[in-house]
Structures are given as C-alpha cells and as structure tokens.
Design a protein around this nucleic acid. Structure first.
Lengths: 254, 254
DNA sequence: GCCTGCTGTTGACCTGGGTCAACCAGGCAG
DNA sequence: CTGCCTGGTTGACCCAGGTCAACAGCAGGC
C-alpha cells in the first residue's frame, strides 16, 4: 500500500491527460499540476474498438473504468427473457463502467457504435491514486453522481413523456453534448441505428421513423439517414415540453 | 484537514452503528472494529420525519447523505412542466442523497411515506473518514454503484415491460427487500399510495387499481387497502416474466 | 354524529403507439 | 452489374392502457 512505482510507470503513457482536449470534461476536471501527473500515470494504454466491438460484457470481472476518447458507444442490459434495454449512448469524455463497482462484475454491456478509442483506468491503481489525491476522489464521486442524475432524466423521459417529446429531448441532449465537445450542435451524426434510438426511448423503430418524418415535415429537422440537421432549435426546444399540448396527465403525484 | 477531533465527537451519538440491526445492509457492511467506531462518530443526531415530511428538496444545498433507519421514504424529481416522476421507495438500511454529489445541490426531493427516522451522515465529516479508512471508501462506492444498477432495473421495467409485469416486479422487489430486513416477505404493507405506485411505474392509478384486482382474482394476491398478502409467490414470479405470454416485442436490439 | 375530502375501485370509451406487412435504398459479395 | 441483406420508411389496422366519470369507504375536522 505504499506509493508504488508502477502507479507512475510512464511507459504505459501515450498522450497525457494534461494535453488531452477532453481535459475539462473528463476526470481531470479541476485537478492540477502534480496531481494530474499522477492521474496520468494510471491511464493505461488506449484501446481501439471497431464498430460493434465489445468493451465489456455483462458478468465480466471488473478491472477498470473506461473513458471514451473518440467515437461513441452504447451500454445496455439484457434481462433473463433476453430483451435488451439500452441505457445510454456515450460520447468522448464520458466515463463508463461504474455499475461494476457494486459487485465487482459488470452489470451491463458496452459496445462501440463506430471505430472508437478508449482510455482505460485500471481500478486498483485509480483507487491508490484517489486515496492520495482527495480532489480526485471528490471528482470521481461527482462523475458517478452525474451518472445517477443522468439516469433520473432518462427515467422521467420514459415515464412521463410522449413519444415525440422523448425524441425531441433525445436530440436536444445530443446537440448539447456536441456543443460541449465544441462540435456543431446543429449537425448531428447519429452513430446509433434507429433500432437503438427506439430501444433507448422504450419505443419501436416504426414510431421513431415516423417521428423523424413528422419533425422533418414540421420543418424542425432535415433528416438524411444518419445525418440530422436541426433547422429550428427553438421549435425543437418547444417540442421537448410539448408532446402534450392540451396538458395530458399520466398521474401527477401522490 | 488534519484528523480532527470533532470527527469522533461522541456526544452526537445516540445508538451506534455497531449495535444497529441494519449493520450489514448499511454503510458499515464489511467494516470492522476501530474503523466502525470512526464511522459511528460521523453519524449525526437521528432525525424523525412525520408522514409527508420533507428530508430535502430539489435545489437544497448538499450537506449530508441520509440512511433510512425506520419507516420509508420516496424520492422524486419534478420537471419544469411540473410533472413528477418517482425515482424510488426507500426502506431501512438504504442510503439516499447521492444525486447531490454532482453539483452540490440536491437534484430530487425526499419525502417520508410514514413516520420515519433517519441517520444523517454529514458529508464533510464522512469524506474525512473515508479518506482515512479505505474500506469505507470502497463501501461507499459500492453503495452508490448499487444505486446505479438499481436504476437500470427501473429503466428496463419501464421501457420493456407490460403493466402487469411491472406491478409484479415491483411487488416482488418489495418482498425481497422485506426479507432482507427479516420481515415477512409475503405480508407487505404498502406505505405509498396507489398514485405513487402508478407514477413510479409510469402508469396511471386506474391501471394499477385494476391490476391489483386482476391479480387478486387470479389468486396471486390478497389485497386489503394497504395490506397486500402474496398468496402465490410462484405465480407472482411467473408474472414478472409473463406480461407478454405470446412473446411481445418492443424492439429488441440494434 | 355528520360532513367533506381524500384514496381507491370500477365501468365505458378512446387513442397513441404497437403490430404486421409491403417496400425502398444503400452496401457489399460474388 | 446483379442479387441479397440489413436498415429504414410508410401504410392499414388493432389493442393496452390512458381518459373520463361515477361512486364507495375510510379519515379527519367540527
């Protein structure tokens, strides 16, 4: 348990966190100088996944957390009956694998939606560093808490929103995340299939397909296969609140 | 930041974690002797809430995590439009408040469903202790990760299951948690209203009410207002997989 | 006791979105 | 180039569950 040498094994390093563009979105956010160097040391060799490549599957022993460095992934669970629920789509800077902390086994599967590269954070070493760098510990807790909040949003979307609102919210959230990455939030590239989107929202493909068409007719979007352009962000924002123009309920309290 | 004295201020203690029946379900799980005493020191005066009492609301500054000691609570979020989504019902031994770690403000509201008592874990002190007791740090991460996994279950239930399956799963999960608490898992007391149950499942009251009646007709349950007796746990377990006898889809992958 | 107001139940009806089926457009193997 | 296969779209139809309305029962206030 002494500050071991392999924690700082610089051979494992390719490009450092300090020079990474995702810096402020990722674990290093708010971590400075020396401490950042130590975090850097724990980041293992970056992995590359092809489209469809599996980062971890349900039941795999927990070894590391992962940061999306480029590309995109989906995470999903499958119940005994074999049906799948997509939990999230993950863009660069997002950290996945937290569900494995509970039982030391992954409780979901992570799969690349396109060629993606991944930073691996071996948990044993990460733990060592967090115990020495309180700021990192706090940051780690913040990140996992953010995941909890994110899931609450997903839950609200599924439980209370109409199909059209759901898709609008999904697109809006994607646009927002694009902008955080300094990309054009109006020009989305949907790396996931319509099936994936439908599944994520608790709908079926046909519904999603129809909704894309409808939003295109409304002049909100321009849809061209995977390329979606948001023509009227204002209308899209309206749709996020407006699946139920007449104020539908679905049981509003207790 | 030095090992301060107030961390071990024994005046704040009523009954210690070490003597608490929830010991093994709660934060102390796997924590022994000396370390447990230190954790004990951080647990502040227990609070009591009446039915409907609010533990924290959305936007409140984050001060502490909370453990349900007795009774039960619900947590929920409200979106701008004002509609509510219940995130969970919390029984003794369960820890709530993690969503506040992300932004230092609570992102949900917690409300007592009946007279309940709560252990307060002031986060500043908890952090101090976790930094000194690695086992506690791990346990804390495990607990929050468990919350993530739990939310995934909720998501699957909402996204993929039929109404009847959902209610069956809800009852089953409640029964399981009763048993972990050494209570009779066949004799449930639903401290939450039908509205709450419906909201939690993304349904409306009428549907839930009808489902209770249907399950009673089927001989699975005996329902008497808040008192629900599970007459046929085997059938209930079947229903958890069997809302769709003919193998419905709702879009099964990507 | 009686009234009032919640919570829960039941019935009749309606609709959003699921189901089924046909078809189209790229992508790629041969 | 051709044919197949996968992903996506569109139309016609249907049903689980939402909506609306009436009512029952218990709880709390006076």
């Amino acid at each position: 348990m002494e500050p071991s040498t392999n924690v700082l094994d610089l051979n494992l390093l390719r490009r450092s966190c300090s020079s990474c563009a995702l810096n402020e979105l990722c674990l290093p956010a708010g971590i400075g100088g020396d401490d950042l160097t130590r975090l850097d040391g724990t980041v293992k060799d970056k992995r590359t996944l092809e489209r469809g490549g599996v980062l971890y599957r349900d039941g795999d022993p927990f070894k590391a957390l992962y940061v999306v460095r480029s590309g995109s992934l989906k995470t999903f669970v499958q119940n005994e009956a074999g049906d799948t629920q997509i939990l999230g789509f993950h863009l660069p800077g997002e950290i996945i694998g937290f569900d494995a902390l509970a039982s030391n086994r992954h409780a979901s599967q992570a799969e690349a939606l396109e060629r993606s590269s991944i930073c691996e954070l071996p948990y044993a070493q990460l733990q060592q560093v967090t115990s020495e760098v309180p700021a990192l510990h706090r940051q780690l807790m913040r990140v996992i808490s953010r995941e909890v909040v994110e899931e609450h949003r997903h839950l609200v979307m599924m439980g209370r929103q109409q199909a059209q609102e759901q898709l609008a919210i999904f697109l809006k959230s994607l646009a927002d995340r694009y902008e955080r990455l300094q990309r054009d939030g109006a020009a989305l590239t949907l790396t996931m299939s319509r099936y994936d989107i439908a599944n994520y929202l608790g709908l079926v493909v046909e519904t999603v397909s129809r909704l894309f068409s409808r939003m295109e007719e409304m002049g909100v979007l321009e849809v061209n296969r995977k390329a979606v352009r948001i023509l009227r962000p204002d209308l899209l924002a309206d749709l996020c609140r407006n699946g139920h123009p007449t104020g539908s309920r679905r049981n509003d309290a207790g």
